[in-house]
Design a protein around this nucleic acid. Structure first.
Length: 172
DNA sequence: GCCAGAACTCTGG
DNA sequence: CCAGAGTTCTGGC
């Protein structure tokens, strides 16, 4: 498999977007390029990585617009492999409205799963490779606190803040 | 294939 | 409020 990726500046730091010919397969936010490239490599150990290879500018632009709070539409094609269970969870996450959050338990019940499987839901979120398109930052713990986040709790909080700000602005 | 761990939640002391 | 058990899925050995 051949993967092209590019790294650009965003409002939340460096943004790595990796894509196959069919869609985005990996997204990462971070402060430095190297760790993000390493994460990409370890998620796709057998892939051929091409820095600054072809990545559809529209996809990158959509993500940047989202990070600026100018768009809640992340209509970016995905080409991320995942189990059936993961895909179901990801779809449920994408159905959460912009600016609002849900608990893992709610997500589990929305999928027709018992509340006890909230743990499995959290696990599926944790293994998602496309952080922004699949809004795992909108998943909250049952007690209202934030659970962990693959790319850092600070970043998760920043995303929630950004969405809240944007929501308030449009509500006024 | 088995065992340990995880972005969780509930119950009992 | 703290400690422990229960659950479902993934990843490494």
């Amino acid at each position: 498999m051949r993967i092209s990726y590019t790294i650009v500046d965003s409002t939340l730091g460096r943004l790595l977007v990796a894509a196959t010919g069919k869609g985005v397969c990996f997204i990462s936010l971070g402060d430095a390029d190297a760790p993000m490239e390493a994460a990409l490599g370890s998620d796709y150990p057998s892939a051929e990585l091409h820095r600054d290879g072809w990545v559809d500018p529209l996809w990158v632009e959509a993500l940047l617009n989202y990070l600026r709070g100018e768009s809640d539409d992340l209509a970016v094609p995905l080409d991320a492999p995942g189990s059936d269970f993961q895909k179901r969870v990801w779809a449920a996450l994408q159905s959460i409205p912009f600016g609002s959050t849900r608990t893992y338990k709610e997500i589990a019940r929305g999928l027709g799963l018992p509340a006890t499987s909230a743990r499995a839901v959290g696990r599926a979120c944790a293994t998602n490779r496309v952080s922004l398109v699949i809004p795992c930052h909108r998943a909250r713990r049952g007690d209202g606190g934030l659970a962990g986040y693959r790319w850092g709790l600070e970043r998760k909080r920043a995303l929630i803040e950004m969405e809240k700000r944007f929501t308030n602005r449009t509500a006024l």
